[in-house]
Computed example of a mutant assay.
Amino acid sequence: MAAKIRQSANYLQIMLLNSENIILERLENDLFVRKQIKLSVLRLDKIHPVISGNKLFKLHYFLQEANNSTHKTIITFGGPYSNHLSATAYACKLSGLKSIGIVRGEKPQQLSHTLQQCIADGMHLHFISRELYAQKKALSFAQRLTMQFGEHILIPEGGYHPLGAKGASMIIQFLANSNATHICSAIGTATTIAGLLLGCKANQQIIGVSVLKGMTNIQEDISAIINTTSDLKQLTILNDYHFGGYAKKTPELISFMNDLYDQYQLPTDFVYTGKLMYGIIDSIKKDIFKPGSDIVCVHTGGLQGNVSLPSGTLIF
């Protein structure tokens, strides 16, 4: 069961791509019936194969700033498999902006599929050591970038910035006609979760599934970009579904992703959305959610990351 989501023409005009493909898809099985739970997925992955999920939302206000500025160069950061780098490269290509990606680690002999796509979309890649990359938030690092590349608009890794959170808050508009009691998302940089907190209603709970191991400062990271602590009362973080850490996976996770696709034709990735869906469904089994809960999981895209898996690992 899928509900088409319609937005006003004015809203669609501010987006780079047509968001009419987005649907709210209901998942149904005996477990949810027994637990008296409704579970749906907001299919942001349907926006575009490259700029999918939460990426376009987090980039929106940065792109707007660049288009209104004399500085037509955007610089951002990411690892060799970064969905954020890939989305930024493509968005800049569509917007007529120059893009530079600061990549964590020395340049490998064989570039990842993601980095190859970045280059194809016009992004200049600049590789730096992990030690230097760790200093990217320092003022001296920003000054160094200006000296090397000239004036530019800087987007932190994953869009982690008040503008990124503001952009992510627009995701809530696609749930305006739903009765969601809980809105769930995977947590990487925490930018999307911060945006969901900014945009949600007072009676809604935000559930974050951390995909990083030992991530103990999530609440502080969120508070830093939404400038408030009051909204955090609506936040619950699930820390037990990282499957070993960022981009780590187990046979159990892969099997779950294949089962999910077999049952619902719902593709997920092993870095973010696979862990999100596993965490939420497992929490339903454990009665974490009260009967009558109407749960929405935000599909944040990132499916291109599955390309790194051996052929035949996934059935989709």
Score class of each variant (00 low, 15 high):
Ile74Asp: 01
Thr114Arg: 00
Gln304Ala: 13
Leu276His: 09
Leu24Asn: 10
Thr268Met: 15
Gly292His: 10
Pro49Gln: 04
Gly150Phe: 05
Leu198His: 04
Ile226Asp: 03
Phe149Gly: 07
Asp259Gly: 11
Val103Gly: 00
Tyr241Gln: 04
Ile102Gln: 01
Arg144Ser: 08
Ala247Trp: 00
Leu17Phe: 07
Cys297Pro: 08
Ala91Lys: 11
Ile280Gln: 05
Gly292Ala: 02
Ser86Trp: 05
Val296Pro: 08
Ile22Trp: 03
Ala190Cys: 11
Ser283Lys: 13
Ser86His: 13
Lys136Trp: 04
Ser19Arg: 09
Ala120Tyr: 07
Asp221Thr: 08
Asp262Tyr: 13
Gln173Leu: 13
Ile183Gln: 04
Ile288Gln: 08
Lys290Met: 13
Leu145Met: 13
Leu111Gly: 01
Ile315Trp: 02
Tyr264Asn: 05
Ile23Gln: 15
Lys93Gly: 01
Gly208Tyr: 12
Ala186Ile: 00
Leu145Ile: 06
Met215Leu: 09
Leu309Met: 07
Ala190Pro: 03
Gly96His: 01
Gln36Ser: 15
Asp231Phe: 04
Gln143Ser: 15
Asn68Arg: 12
Phe149Pro: 15
Thr268Cys: 15
His299Ser: 07
Asn18Tyr: 07
Val211Asn: 10
Ser283Phe: 06
His84Cys: 06
Thr216His: 13
Arg130Pro: 11
Ile171Leu: 13
Phe256Asn: 12
Asp231Gly: 06
Lys249Ile: 14
Pro267Ala: 04
Lys213Cys: 05
Ser69Cys: 02
Gly312Glu: 06
Thr146Met: 06
Glu65Ala: 14
Leu175Trp: 10
Gly96Ser: 02
Tyr278Trp: 15
Gly105Lys: 12
Tyr133Arg: 01
Ile23Val: 15
Ile37Met: 04
Ile187Trp: 04
Leu115Ser: 00
Ser99Arg: 08
Phe57Tyr: 15
Thr228Trp: 03
Lys93Arg: 10
Ile75Gln: 05
Gln205Pro: 00
Val211Met: 12
Ala2Asp: 13
Ala120Pro: 06
Glu220Asp: 12
Leu94Ile: 13
Tyr272Thr: 00
Asn239Ala: 13
Asp294Ser: 12
His124Trp: 03
Val307Asn: 09
Asp221Gln: 11
Ser140Lys: 07
Lys233Ser: 10
Phe57Leu: 11
Asn29Ile: 11
Leu253Thr: 06
Met277Phe: 09
Gly312Leu: 08
Gln204Gly: 01
Asn239Gln: 14
Thr73Ser: 08
Ser8Leu: 14
Leu27Glu: 08
Gln219Phe: 04
Thr146Gly: 03
Leu139Glu: 09
Pro49Met: 03
Gln117Thr: 12
Phe127Asp: 07
Met15Asp: 08
Glu220Ser: 11
Arg26Cys: 13
Ile237Thr: 01
Lys98Thr: 14
Gly274Ser: 10
Tyr81Asp: 05
Leu17His: 14
Ile100Thr: 03
Ser178Lys: 07
Phe243Ser: 05
Leu44Cys: 05
Leu94Val: 04
Gly53Cys: 12
Ser311Asn: 09
Met170Lys: 12
Pro310Ala: 12
Thr250Asn: 05
Tyr160Ala: 08
Ser293Glu: 12
Thr313Cys: 11
Asp282Met: 09
Lys275Phe: 00
His71Val: 09
Asp262Asn: 15
Leu12Glu: 12
Thr73Pro: 03
Ala247Gln: 11
Gly301Pro: 02
Cys200Gly: 06
Gln7Arg: 14
